[in-house]
Amino acid sequence: MPRYRLWLLTVALWVAGCGGPFPQTTLEPRSDFGSVIDQLFTGIFWWAAGVFLVVETLLVITLIRFRHREGRPAPKPTHGHTLMEIAWTLAPAAILVFVAVPTVRTIFATAGEAPADALKVDVIGHQWWWEFRYRELGLVTANELHVPLGRAVQLSITSADVIHAFWAPPLGGKRDAIPGHVNRIAFRADRVGVYDGQCAEFCGASHANMRLRVVVDSDSGFGRWATVQLAGPAAPAAGTLAERGKAVFARSACIGCHTIQGVSPGVIGPNLTHVGSRATIASGLFPNDSAHLASWIADAPALKPGSLMTRMKPPLKDDDIAALVAYLASLK
């Protein structure tokens, strides 16, 4: 960890008193993309800190040294000094060269190109959730992006409605998800873990609630996950609550918006084929447990303002909701 970051974090911890962990920090990069940006920022930070110290010190010294004192003779009316003007024009220009050169180098290094064997994922922003499509693997999931450790990943980012921005800070910088455009970022994660992120472009009422998680798995872990996701949905055993839940799902409005492979074809909301395997619901807002799932199904807009998943009309009965929850939880 570079020294300045220790310093920064110390200040932060001292002020914060709690001291993290900071799941969305940009200061502890966990990918090559994040690291080059961090190095660039560190360099600029030191230049800025240096300039800050020099100029502010100069200002303070001037103020102290030339403060008004009784009997001080009238100041000499100096109007300017050409050489000094030239000097302090050239000095910042020179410093900027040291900022500009690595900047341009990094721009081209992070332009979104990835090696041919990169895992390609389409990222589609929706109001207010994320859709992830693994084209080669033929699988679709939502809000939780799984990537393998050490393998290059290329995200092709776009939007289905308004402008969003995909941002998982520990893995690198954000890119806008713009309807009608495709933006690319590429990164190679260098540590297993779960990294938080969220939409970074204001996109309406629940912009703050459009969160996401990136799960960096080991190679084998990723393989296992993909195998599970590729399989069809688990069929609930006969006579269980889950089976009743499947029936409730099939006869209510759910099917209009959600896909469950082999059950319903809706494409407006997230694909639920393996919703039980996800750790969170409502795009990273709540843990995926039966209590939260139940209140989410009952009244989503109460938990997520503006949510397109409106209150059911007529409202589902409590036992129907319980059945639905059991069914969804079974979709591992």
Partner: peptide, 23 residues
């Protein structure tokens, strides 16, 4: 203004700005 100007230079650099913009 010096502080504002200097932080401005940090996001004049596009890659760094990708971590800073909209935050």
């Amino acid at each position: 203004f010096i502080i504002g100007g200097l932080s401005g230079v940090t996001h004049a650099s596009p890659p760094a700005d990708l971590q800073q913009t909209d935050t």
